[in-house]
């Protein structure tokens, strides 16, 4: 597959914080690539370096085979960037915002394209409304339209759905799926695991490094631990007790249930069940589940922090 982004040994520091730490990564053509990680993992910094807003301290990267440092201006023409916060002119209308970005990108004939985009985003009725009077979801869609007006080949989206209501979020993802079908490579960052599952490939980013990077199903296949879901009460007590069993590697609370991560070689399903039953806990349900990306990511993070 054709590589459109190649990152080698890239570092970016802010004073004594290594926001991006000797990172290697590749993004293939036409894929939707997801950078997922907690706040402060370095996702935004990485995207900003790739878009040419920040200068890397060391290492190199190329986009479409163009050098990230030397060919910055050539790269700029072919990428679209949607930053984390709403960054359009609130005191200009939707039409004016799109027209402005079309003009500064040297797009001459943009009227038709603008109408198409507005319709795609479902905001064609509000062309004359000031951008600041739009709802959060519509603002994001407008921002997306502005980054698409010059028909970029790659789209960098930095946490586009943070602070957007669930309905708009779903619509937003449908639009992204359409864009991908049209042949736009998308690099998206998100703190939400459910969004990561919708992408082609996922990179777990933590403390400036990538812990693992692959297709979601392969990440799951590679995971050699089992996960048991226990619905029980009082959940804190169960949690505290299970923590004392050293053979269980990791325990996470998800609302009214616990996820126990364990290695079948060390402890069997039956043994865990016995442990739970012999105490006086109220157990409503016990079952083995297939690991989600979230389980795997938390495990990997714990492992990294423990090292």
């Amino acid at each position: 597959m054709e590589k459109v982004i190649e990152i080698r040994n890239l570092s970016k520091n802010f004073k004594d914080i290594n926001a991006v730490n000797e990172l290697d990564m590749e993004v293939f053509k036409d894929e939707m690539f997801c950078l997922v990680g907690p706040d402060g993992a370095g996702k935004t910094t990485l995207v900003r370096v790739l878009c040419g807003i920040l200068k890397p301290d060391s290492g190199c990267f190329s986009i479409f085979g163009l050098d990230g440092r030397k060919d910055r201006n050539k790269i700029k023409r072919r990428i679209g960037y949607l930053s984390q916060k709403f960054s359009l002119y609130g005191d200009l209308t939707i039409d004016e915002n799109i027209s402005f970005f079309a003009k500064v990108h040297n797009v001459k004939e943009f009227k038709d394209e603008k109408d198409v985009l507005l319709e795609k985003m479902g905001i064609e009725k509000f062309g004359n409304r000031l951008a600041e009077r739009l709802s959060g979801g519509m603002k994001k869609k407008l921002a997306l339209a502005c980054t698409l007006i010059h028909s970029p080949d790659i789209l960098f989206l930095d946490e586009p759905t943070t602070g957007v209501d669930p309905v708009s979020r779903r619509e937003f993802w449908e639009i992204l799926a359409d864009l991908k079908r049209e042949g736009i490579t998308i690099l998206i960052t998100t703190p939400y695991m459910d969004e990561a599952e919708r992408c082609d490939r996922v990179a777990f980013m933590y403390n400036g490094s990538i812990l693992s990077c692959d297709y979601p199903h392969i990440i799951k296949e590679k995971f050699d631990k089992r996960i048991m879901e226990v619905v029980c009460s009082p959940i804190r007590e169960v949690y505290k007790y299970m923590e004392t069993i050293e053979k269980i590697e990791s325990i996470h609370i998800f609302g009214d249930r616990l996820h126990l991560v364990f290695d079948e070689v060390k402890i069997s399903v039956q043994e865990i069940k016995e442990e739970l039953i012999k105490r006086d806990f109220n157990i409503y349900n016990i079952r083995l589940i297939s690991p989600s990306l979230e389980n795997i990511f938390i495990m990997k993070m714990e492992k990294r922090t423990g090292e």
């Binding site: 201006n73 700029k76 709403f86 359009l88 500064v104 990108h105 040297n106």
Partner: peptide
């Protein structure tokens, strides 16, 4: 408002 960042990414 963050538009400076957006402008930097334009040509």
């Amino acid at each position: 408002i963050g538009t400076m960042e957006q402008l930097i990414v334009t040509p």
